[in-house]
Amino acid sequence: MKIIATLAAAGVVAGLTAVPAAAQFPDRPITWVVPYTPGGITDTGSRIIAEVLGKELGQTVVVENRPGAGGMVGTEYVARAEPDGYTILYGTQGTMAANVSLRKALKYDPLTDFAPVHGMGASVNTVVTYADAPYSTIQELVDYGKAHPGELNFGSAGVGTSTHLSMELFKTIAGIEGLHVPYKGSAPAMNDLLAGRVDVLFDYPVSSLGHAEAGTLKVLAVNSPERIAILPDAPTLAESGYPDATAGSWSMIMVPAGVPEDRMKILTDAAEKAIRSDTVKNYYEKYGSTLLLVKGDAATDFIEAEIDRWADVIATAGVPKQ
């Protein structure tokens, strides 16, 4: 018994003295919760960043997949986690902005339960159509859509995803009617697009690229502010006359609200270096994404603006709130 008591006392003392030593943060591995299944762009990207980030911090960054409910399960988990800086989150346009308007019973508040560390990537959507479609530019598509109201089928990777919302935004701004056909992810939607069963797809540059090169589909536009490196010939929606339809999804490293100032600074600095590293930059470029270089208050403002923006789109498009 004596030994145990001594050990316990030693533990308490060690615990007390550990507090001032927190300047050495991090002194153990950091868990990075990715609220999606392994695989896919999100997870692969996080593993690449985790490696660089780990080197910057001098500690391993372990990617932990906690998938479920479009990212909500893992995000809620982090909202409840200890704000000691050892648990960080992969936040996205979906979990941090669109869900506020899509979900009735959201069990976290992106602005009060979390604090942004640093932005990661901003990904764009390609607007693609099948090879023999009777239109080859956005303007021709809009003209066609106006001449044949209700006949066009617009595919998306699912209700409430960025591809769906960006598409609804475009339809509203361009003033064309079209049927929304949701799919379970972008792969089956692409299968139906290639066969001409859907007419227009809001897709991701990676999955469009191979088909664009082979000529099995036409890229009408990208919805980013500027043209992207991997598809230099595709005009932006702004160039095509619809600057307000520029949209896309993004990702950001988040922590639960309440992480001490000094630890926050260590995390932010390391994240900034990691995101700006060549490894990460090249990776995002390969996927047709750009870097999202925001941190601190600017990041909070960015999230706030995004929440408002998607609330408008969701209301206009009439997406049901769950």
Binding site: G70, V159, P182, Q322
Partner: peptide, 9 residues
Amino acid sequence: GTDVNSGYD
């Protein structure tokens, strides 16, 4: 679960 076609739970 979430219905693919409508987004309803």
